[in-house]
Design a protein around this nucleic acid. Structure first.
Length: 427
DNA sequence: TCTGGGGTCCTAGGACCC
DNA sequence: TCTGGGGTCCTAGGACCC
């Protein structure tokens, strides 16, 4: 019989905000939100205080949420700000209404990534099986780590918390359970700077009372659908008949939901994985029109393609499928993909292919966001040989003669903006 | 005055091949 | 000639996560 698994989920506490508090300790305990603008707030602050260090800048000099203008969402809020109902993914303007006195700082991605690497290597030095789950979270397999089972994993978790705090000055919360699914839920039980240990037998008492939305994988849509079926808690979900769930959610989702509700999950902790896609996208300061703002859009488009190419090259990948993503002013999303014969990581080539994608999408409506995506990736120098001969394997310059759709859609778009150039000529 | 940017995975339909 | 599977590749959209 295999030994019981002990899987930990570690979540850094208010990560982005905590990183800023290291730089500005005078803000500790105050409502602070991170997010929004691309403005160099810090540069401006330091310019006003040339002789002083960040930690001596008076609190009164920091920008407030009430004065914030522009688009964007909250990335992280300090616990003091959360008291006011402000939280991750909330629009800045809505947050400003709830907590106008909060201090707002932009995300410093370089700094966040530096601390992310630091806390992850610190953990890996103690327990080597670490799975990356984004910038501020990891799963850790305690099962085969010496001492990993003591007090159900609590001893090792404490050791890791101490090491992370020593190396980074940051706190984290850890849940330890028989699998990733429960560990993820458990890590939220004692936030911040907490540890919680769960066993299989704890599922009915600790997990079943929770709302179904606490299951990692049940989002707004599934949550709503379950609510409409009068299923609110995980325990209520666990009591359902499998056929009932399968009938309403499909074979795989329905079956998975029931397994999840019973706390069953045998996914391994995976330390290495290859990227599936890379992308760059940007939301404009104001909605742009394909024709009327063509120069601005064209420049943004080229810059996105160049950045994507640079990303691919820096990471040593090439791509065979290039795609675009638009978000219209009404928030609808359109995507177009094109797979070409040869792999590329060249900005201008990406731009050429993405330009063809753009011709296949309606452009009469204002745009809020433009994005470029590379997929079907291969490591540079290890590209698999071409497989078959078909239309989508044509060389890039021949793809210009793409037989359908281009003209019909371009015509439609140009009709909508009569008297002006057809959008497809702009890119 | 709504709603960022970077991802993964799944579904479903059509083309094409055997 | 008709019918019918299965498998793979590609594309578009959508749910979900951090």
């Amino acid at each position: 019989m295999p030994p019981i698994r002990r899987i930990a989920h570690l979540d850094m506490d208010a990560f982005f905000a905590s990183v800023e508090l290291l730089r500005y300790p005078q803000l500790k305990g105050l409502p602070v939100v991170i997010g929004g603008g691309r403005r160099k707030v810090d540069d401006a602050l330091l310019a006003d205080h040339p002789e002083r260090q960040p930690r001596f800048i008076p609190v009164a000099d920091f920008p407030l949420l009430r004065d914030y203008v522009g688009r964007g969402v909250i990335t992280t809020a300090t616990y003091a700000a959360r008291q006011f109902g402000v939280g991750s993914a909330m629009g800045m303007m809505k947050a400003a209404k709830l907590c106008p006195q909060a201090i707002v700082l932009p995300v410093d991605f370089d700094e966040v990534r530096r601390f992310s690497r630091l806390f992850k290597t610190t953990i890996a030095d103690i327990a080597p099986l670490v799975e990356d789950r984004g910038v501020d979270e990891v799963y850790i397999d305690f099962t085969d780590v010496p001492g990993g089972h003591r007090e159900g994993g609590r001893v090792l978790a404490r050791l890791i918390q101490r090491a992370v705090l020593e190396k980074t000055g940051l706190t984290c919360s850890i849940g330890i359970a028989p699998n990733k699914l429960i560990a993820k839920m458990a890590s939220e039980f004692n936030k911040p700077n907490g540890i919680s240990v769960l066993y299989e037998a704890d599922v009915p008492t600790r997990i079943w009372p929770l709302h179904v939305r606490k299951i990692n994988g049940i989002g707004p849509k599934a949550g709503e659908k379950l609510a409409a079926l009068n299923i609110h808690t995980i325990g209520e979900l666990a009591a359902q008949d499998p056929d009932f769930l399968i009938k309403r959610f499909g074979k795989s989702t329905g079956a998975w939901m029931l397994e999840a509700a019973w706390g069953r999950d045998n996914r391994p902790v995976v330390t290495e994985s290859e990227p599936v896609s890379m992308s760059r996208e940007t939301t404009f300061d104001r909605d742009l029109h394909a024709v009327r703002d063509r120069a601005e859009l064209g420049a943004i488009f080229t810059a996105l393609c160049d950045k994507l190419g640079a990303d691919l090259q820096r990471k040593g990948y090439v791509a065979k499928t290039i795609g675009i993503k638009l978000r219209y002013d009404d928030f609808r999303i359109a995507t177009r993909d094109q797979t070409v014969e040869s792999y590329t990581s060249d900005g201008p080539t990406i731009r050429k292919i993405a330009g063809l994608c753009l011709k296949r999408v309606p452009l009469s409506q204002r745009l809020r966001l433009l994005g470029v995506r590379a997929s079907l990736l291969a490591r540079q120098g290890e590209e698999p040989p071409p497989a078959s001969k078909n239309a989508s394997d044509m060389p890039v310059d021949q793809v210009n003669k793409w037989p359908i759709a281009i003209n019909s859609i371009a015509d439609k778009a140009s009709n909508d903006v009569s008297g002006q150039a057809a959008p497809d000529q702009l890119f």
